[in-house]
Design a binder for these strands. Structure first.
Lengths: 333, 333
DNA sequence: CTGAAAGCGCTAACAC
DNA sequence: GTGTTAGCGCTTTCAG
């Protein structure tokens, strides 16, 4: 591999000039710049990442902590990851992939200067990793709002508002008997941030309207969704609308509804809270409150970069939920 | 951050001794080792990854090239990734995540010494990236068998054998009218390695038995599966067994079968070719030929490490397919 | 069994 | 606008 010195020699300039051509940190005559750029191309030169990290104390790498084997929906995770990786490249950053269950992985990435910042997904309300993260004194961004962000940057959908919105949207259509099918008991048990906040918003709205509702968790998979919708129909036989906040259970819920003789949309309304593409791919295109996962991943990177550049203070960014109407909801006459 | 020098001072030894304690590359008296290890713990010392990479020309990082937004099933991708990341940690390696559509990403990772080896997924028969990969002269492993591996290591399920096995298993059960629903036309059009090889094996077996079959691609999603199974029922009204090699279309196929009045298992047999957990999560637990994605990811890492250590020659590892019986297939009387 | 010291390739003062 | 050079923190000869 060619080094910066080889390039310098080839272009007839000094090492530092090559370095500055690359970084743009001081002005270079058009003439010189050209010769250097030619030499770089000629030699296929790439700066050695390690050497650069050592000299500049910047690794140009972001560490992403992902829950690879979690009960969280893979689809959503992949979208976060996609958003993070693509936006990272816009900032000329690479992404180091860490898993949740790599003990000490976070410390390793931070303290060995492997990464300039950390992005962590699947945040619980009282996430035990947050104190660790804070102690590292490195820029960190959470995808998911914890109870106490402790001065870290956060991006998330405003799930509380989403819960409220779900209720209001359906009551606005005239529905009076509304149920909610939520995440798996495991997710709820872990007090995963988004799950609880959605529930709070939803229940709060129902209470303000002084109207009862049924809330059921659902296990993952077809069977889980099926069981959950059966319990709902049992507890609330006159139900006319159901909110589903569980991607993996969605197909089962729809099947169950059909099996019970309910036409989706015309009969019972279904409002999903999930990424748009998941909503679209179902048996019936579902009206949904979009979880803009790719966008959230991108924002996470932007927040991280802002912290790395030292310009910005930690920031909490909650995205406003919105309903996209498709074929699964209808106004009650 | 503490440096190796701080540790050396604290332990009253030289830099090199600390380094050797860490690497184990020369013998150290128990006494000294102990003092050094204490100092390391005391100071919370972590070697600077960049410095280490610079001095040793080893980054301890594997680059993983993943098709993040592809039409390939996310579930499967995540499993490969999981396998790669967990096994990488066993080798004390970290994983850099690159995307398919990051032009020059491969070159960057390799030539800037960001990664010691590359692992690439979603390989096409005539993959245009392979020549690039070969020119890099870095250890590289393909997850997916191309037409010509060009001296790179490869791990894959033996899809040709899987196609044959699918046919033989079903004919073994007495089925005579068998159809296959394959990947999306896009995947087939790209000549994705696994798609074509499965088809070859399957068709070859059918021809040897001198029996006709119907092959239909399916678009992703519920609608895609539904449409595909309808076409199959149209072309082959007496069909008694269908092979499905398309995770995303699976739910639609099952729904379509039901809608046409066929009970799955007792009526029409369904054999899926997909990861085990996908097969299990369907409306009916499906008999399947497992795609052991996690295991393949792990093997990919092992192959990469073997190349890095310089000990082994490139190796092509094809895994033997096996049928796991669940509830969706039955012998024809 | 241990130390001294020469780089690894780059960045960023500091000089001019 | 450009060159010189002192590190960055580690690994690894070479010496003893």
């Amino acid at each position: 591999m060619a080094t910066i010195h080889d390039v310098a020699k080839a272009a007839g300039v000094s090492n530092s000039t090559v370095s500055y051509v690359l970084s743009g940190k001081r002005s270079i005559s058009a003439e010189t710049r050209h010769r250097v750029e030619d030499a770089i191309k000629q030699l296929g030169y790439r700066p050695h990442a390690g050497a650069r990290a050592l000299a500049s104390s910047r690794s140009s790498t972001l560490a992403l902590v992902a829950p690879l084997r979690a009960d969280v929906d893979v689809n959503v995770i992949m979208q976060f990851v996609t958003g993070v990786v693509t936006r990272a490249r816009d900032h000329e950053m690479d992404v180091l992939l860490l898993t949740q269950d790599d003990p000490g992985g976070i410390e390793r990435a931070a303290n060995s200067s492997l990464a300039d910042a950390l992005i962590m997904m699947d945040i619980e309300a009282e996430d035990p990793r947050i104190p660790t993260l804070v102690e590292l004194r490195r820029p960190a961004v959470l995808i998911g709002l914890p109870a106490d962000a402790r001065g870290l940057s956060v991006v998330d959908l405003d799930f509380e508002a989403a819960g409220r919105l779900a209720w209001q949207y359906l009551t606005g259509l005239g529905h009076r008997q509304i149920a909610l099918i939520g995440p798996t008991p495991a997710v709820l048990g872990r007090h995963t941030s988004y799950a609880n906040r959605l529930l709070d918003g939803y229940r709060g709205a129902a209470e303000r309207d002084d109207r009862p509702t049924a809330v059921e968790p659902a296990e993952a998979g077809h069977a889980g969704g099926l069981a959950a919708i059966r319990r709902v129909l049992d507890r609330m036989p006159e139900v006319s609308a159901v909110v589903v906040h569980n991607e993996a259970a969605l197909p089962g819920v729809l099947t169950g509804l059909r099996a019970a003789g309910h036409e989706i949309g015309t009969g019972i309304s279904v409002l999903a809270i999930c990424p748009a593409d998941v909503a679209v791919q179902q048996a019936v295109p579902l009206t949904s409150i979009d979880i803009p996962a790719i966008r959230m991943g991108k924002i996470a990177v932007d927040l991280a970069m802002a912290r790395i550049d030292g310009s910005d203070d930690p920031e909490i960014r909650l995205l406003v939920p919105q309903v996209t109407e498709r074929d699964s909801t209808r106004a009650l006459l």
